[in-house]
Design a protein around this nucleic acid. Structure first.
Lengths: 139, 139
DNA sequence: CTAAGTGCAAAACTTTTGCAGGCGA
DNA sequence: TCGCCTGCAAAAGTTTTGCACTTAG
């Protein structure tokens, strides 16, 4: 997969070693249907193919990759932290508080934010999430 | 304080008992300079005046008050969950990732969000936070 | 070869829960 | 008085850390 190589090169450029464990983590994020994965999710999905890999390693690498900007840490107010791989386009979500499903939304508030409002502040990243009840749960 | 009474009445209306512990929690939120407090923060600030109050009670009440809409749970990606008391106006924040200080911003993305984008979704609440480096830390 | 990375085990931390007694309405 | 609330203690669950061994470059 071409995209996999793109992320692996990012590791390389930042001076990180390319271990099988790290490749597996990237693979899981790219192949998973769900964009938002917890450390445990990642570990479970890897376990099928690679049972010896420890959860500790997942934690350590999610943390490293997040610092490098390969992953973004999300926080929907649950106990577990969720991570998302940074595709070229970032996006925000509608999160159903009943069933937990999240859907991407094509809207970014930063486009509407007047630069004056963030004067004297160097914006690095932002979060915008909408919580509510999805169509399925509404019935 | 008039505002205190407002929040205490909310407890009453929802059928909750007005215990000294609950009054203390509300007081801390109203008196604290920092709008965003973790369970431990609240507990520490109460400890000075009321050392016998347990952290468990803080947790239980933050949870209850959040369900009643008296408090909002925030999540800036730290380990601890933070809570904020709901004044009449909600607001969003600039959060400095260096020093942790957060500043309110006078902008709400929902005002700019086309209703079409959230069709078939019942919006209950939302989060919008901007992370970066504040003026102080920039020097 | 050697620094970075990993697995194991244990610890650290935050949050939740069961239970018996206490207290507000 | 009655049922909600609290404190205590213990458990549960997630994330971090120390250490010795392994491995990518």
């Amino acid at each position: 997969m071409k995209e996999t190589i793109f992320f692996i090169k990012q590791l390389q450029e930042k001076g990180l070693k390319i271990t099988p464990q790290r490749q597996e983590i990237i693979r899981v994020f790219l192949e998973s249907k769900n964009n938002h994965l917890s450390a445990e999710d990642v570990h479970n999905q890897i376990a099928e193919k690679f049972p010896s890999m420890s959860l500790d390693t997942v934690y350590r690498n999610l943390s490293v990759m997040q610092q490098l900007g390969i992953l973004t840490e999300l926080n929907f107010g649950e106990r577990k932290n969720l991570f998302e791989i940074n595709s070229s386009q970032h996006h925000h979500h509608l999160v159903c508080t009943k069933c937990g499903v999240s859907e991407e939304i094509d809207f970014c508030p930063l486009e509407f934010l007047d630069a004056d409002k963030v004067k004297n502040f160097k914006v690095k990243k932002h979060s915008f999430e909408i919580f509510g009840i999805c169509a399925n749960c509404m019935e």
